[in-house]
């Protein structure tokens, strides 16, 4: 980290990212049709007024997941906004300031990590959507699989506005407080320094390798999550054993897991704190869809973890000798 802007960044939390803006087009049927065709969504209430009436709606509605689409300003809109901003360069909106400060900390790369949306009511053709955003959180410096960086979550609130919605930034900021709130989106990004690892963290404890479990660690190094498979009766087993508990056969090979499963149980470790790990440390017992269970790390917000949650394995190379499966939300 070249500079530490922790204090300046903390001051940005809770601030609006800039004045509210309005999408270029109102909610409209042609765009809805393009969307559902692209998504393969056959629900008739998005395109057939009769079907919508039948379920008690006044008209067709937009798919809820289009929420953000109605606020997008398109290529041209973006350019116009940027050129306007260029004319008043002395105004640095909080979002721009956050990105600049993070760049100065050396976190020059960006990746979107999560997007959560909440829909308060369906949107109908003809409605105009305005958006106001605030910086909700900026994390401490974290070590991630991508590199060291900070997470930032922006909360956007979506409103239905009419033609009287003002053009000037100040007027919009005032007018939006009385507009109808129809949805919320939390968008989380990681700004990071690519490839930079926290220098103080020692490597994780080494697994003991025998002829019985070597396939598992070699498989992970090759990017594969392997499960032992009895070639006599077909039963899968994990962790490794030389024989099959179902039939007693010593003959086996492996199958590759798709890495999909659900959280069967989990813990969050707080103490003791071993320098090779970050705490609190969430660890899951994952029931893989193939039928075996596996203990693995979870790359999930600690508060979001629940038994039954669907997860997906990602294989992380921790160092030259060790790769491990890390489970993330199947929804992300």
């Amino acid at each position: 980290m070249t500079q530490d802007h922790s204090h300046s960044l903390a001051e940005l939390v809770g601030q609006s990212t800039g004045p509210p803006w309005v999408g270029l087009d109102p909610v409209n049927e042609p765009m809805i049709r393009h969307w559902v065709e692209a998504m393969g969504d056959a629900n008739p209430i998005y395109v057939d007024a009769g079907a919508a009436l039948e379920v008690g709606l006044e008209s067709v509605i937009a798919p809820p997941t289009m929420l953000q689409a109605w606020s997008m300003v398109g290529l041209t809109g973006t350019l116009e906004r940027d050129s306007q901003r260029g004319q008043v360069k002395e105004i640095e909106h909080p979002n721009d300031r956050m990105m600049r400060l993070l760049d100065e900390e050396g976190f020059t790369s960006v990746v979107a990590t999560n997007c959560e949306q909440e829909y308060l009511r369906p949107l109908k053709p003809g409605e105009r959507i305005a958006v106001s955003s605030v910086i909700e959180t900026i994390s401490d410096v974290k070590k991630t699989g991508l590199g060291v960086g900070r997470f930032s979550t922006t909360r956007s609130d979506f409103y239905v506005v009419d033609d009287s919605f003002p053009e000037d930034p100040e007027g919009r900021t005032n007018a939006i407080t009385s507009a109808e709130h129809v949805g919320t989106m939390r968008f989380r990004i990681l700004k990071f320094a690519p490839g930079a690892q926290a220098p103080t963290m020692p490597p994780r404890p080494r697994p003991a390798i025998t002829q019985d479990n070597e396939y598992f660690y070699e498989g992970l190094k090759a990017g594969k999550l392997l499960i032992q498979h009895c070639t006599e009766c077909g039963t899968l087993r994990h962790p490794s054993l030389p024989g099959c508990g179902a039939c007693g056969s010593l003959e086996w090979d492996t199958v590759e897991s798709a890495g999909a499963g659900e959280i069967y149980s989990f813990v969050v470790v707080h103490y003791p704190q071993v320098p090779s790990f970050e705490y609190p440390l969430p660890i899951g017992l994952i029931a893989l869809d193939e039928g075996t269970r596996i203990v693995a790390n979870l790359d999930l917000d600690v508060d979001s973890i629940a038994i039954g949650m669907r997860v997906q394995a990602r294989i992380d190379k921790l160092d030259d000798e060790l790769s491990l499966p890390i489970f993330i939300s199947a929804a992300s």
Partner: peptide, 29 residues
């Protein structure tokens, strides 16, 4: 390279290192 060490291999690199953590993972369920 023996079976007792290999048993721990399943848990050590993950950070499941203590008796409390081993019990807790069953107890949560």
């Amino acid at each position: 390279a023996n079976a007792e060490s290999a048993h721990l291999a399943t848990y050590m690199p993950v950070g499941l290192l203590t008796p409390a953590s081993w019990v807790a993972l069953a107890a949560q369920r």
